[in-house]
Amino acid sequence: MTSPAMKKSRAFSPWPAAVFICLVVLALLFLAPTFGVLLAAMKSTGDIAAGQLWSIPTTLFLDNFREVLANPSVKIYFLNTFLVAVPGTFGSILMGILAGYVFAKLPFRGSNLLFLAIVSGMFFPPQIILIPLFRIFNALGILDTLWPLIIVHIAMGIPICTLLMRNFFATVPNALREAAILEGANEWQVLTRIAIPVSLPALAVLATLQFTWIWNDFLWPLIFTQSDEKRTIMLGLVNLNGQYSVAWGVQGALALMASLPTLIIFLFFQRFFIRGMTMGAVKG
């Protein structure tokens, strides 16, 4: 028996245990879909068709992965996606640094309105600029190359990158900048030697977010590329799923491999990722 004098919170309560069990059940339900892909990837097509997809495999069956790795298209898709995601990530962050610095440290009349206009860009569905962009890239003669993808990802990344960089630069004390200016530094030196070095966490946040989004993108390559040699991984995934139409195990292995880079980023940089998502969402 607990004495009434004892603090109420110290008394036994079934609540934490109930919450814990509840969470475990929910977590298992939540993991089931992802787990299913893992299971499928380790099953032969025959097993899956026989209704064996959701059983735990007894032997390590890796033929599906071999099949995927032997497919030359898969290598091209991966390479293309890296060739888009890396410059796209760097480019958009660079834009965000430049614009964010001005909005944080060199505000001018109307700069808040301009900032708001740029940031609101992240709320609009990409469909509203699809047709004119198609026409522009067609006129430039770069349709069915990786260039439109890189350009569009840099441009579409400007709103979120500007938002996060401005918010981060705003936390750098003004006195620091003024002291450096009085010492004879120019704005560029303040940016590269003071503002950027203290903003490494913000850069990590943006790098994880941008890379993941660009890697997972589907719409832009769908519109701007046609030939198999220019496809990125998500478009390639859809294409190969058509090829391996009933080879569900191969499809599972493909989906897993296509998600691997973003899964790795998520596992190692989860904190940055979550922070970016909430910062972007809450401040937007």
Binding site: N216, S259, T262
Partner: peptide, 26 residues
């Protein structure tokens, strides 16, 4: 609970196509 957000919509779609599959879907 947060993991699915790092998967692409394409992969998420594929997973759920399997779950809703009429004959052997979960």
């Amino acid at each position: 609970f947060y993991l699915p957000i790092c998967l692409s919509a394409i992969v998420v779609g594929q997973i759920w196509v399997w779950i809703f599959q009429p004959d052997w879907g979960l």
